[in-house]
Amino acid sequence: MENKLPSFLLDQPSPVSFKQGKGRIKMGFLEEGIHHLAQLIKKGYVQWELSSGSGLFQKIDARVKVLFLLFFVIIVNLKRDLLSELYIGGFIFSLALLSRIRIVTFYSRVLFLGFFLGFLIAFPSAFNVITNGEMVGPVIRFSKPINFWIYHIPAEVGITREGIYGVIRLTLRVINSLSLSFLVLYTTPFSEILRALKVLKVPDTFIIIITLCFKYIFIFSKTAEDMHLSKKSRMVREATHAEAREWIAGRVAFIFMKTRLRYEEVFKAMIGRGFSDTIKLYGFPKMRTGDCYAGTFLLFTGVFFLFI
């Protein structure tokens, strides 16, 4: 799959020689911004390529997968015990295996985000300052409890059993929710996911706006990257903060004008093809028997998880 990626995504950014200090800056922040843009395009490619694979989930109708995602995310968020979360996590793992997703790539992304969005945010609540309970890991001891305004800090501050339980539950919830999202994303083309939103009664107009935005983002991400590379190739001296800010503000304005021009062109093309403000997406074909079986299986599995 790697050799199908465009070369500009595979190139490592070249080191830059701008100095820092006294109003002179490194170009690192620009590199970082452009890196984000390149990553964005790369993720789009990877998602597109993975979703066209031939695993279990790739064969299922997008409508079934969107309903599965919504149903299971709600279940994951309703469950209160760790064991249920672990069972659901195991079920998602087996679905990912059967879908022939690259497990290491998949879980490195899930666990990375899960660590930041789940564990790190929740971790301070493991202390008895937030969650009272049985102390399992004392950290600091004061001579007496501290009280100020509405806050109370006990004489002994540490991690509680109940606090750890809460942190693990939140972390598992975040990881399971992310796994579900990425499982559907990695096995379904984004355009199909958007079209499948029709089953949730999302208006066609809104789906078209999201689709257009998605297409524009990829076009203009490449434009932004090109602008940066052309600027970098013409730079012969250090940039000051003020120059850098002026340049970025100018590029954002330029993108704004480009997007306006593009929208005018798209609008003219739509009019040219007979657009009359009536948006109607083509419906999906009738669901196959296999999709119905898959949907029923996922529904019953979800109900099972809901009641265990």
Binding site: I208, I210, L212, I255, T259, M270, F275, D277
Partner: peptide
């Protein structure tokens, strides 16, 4: 009127 769909797509991308 007719322009609102491509306009909003553009605004969102920006």
């Amino acid at each position: 009127s007719l322009k609102h769909v491509p306009y909003l797509g553009m605004a969102a991308a920006f």
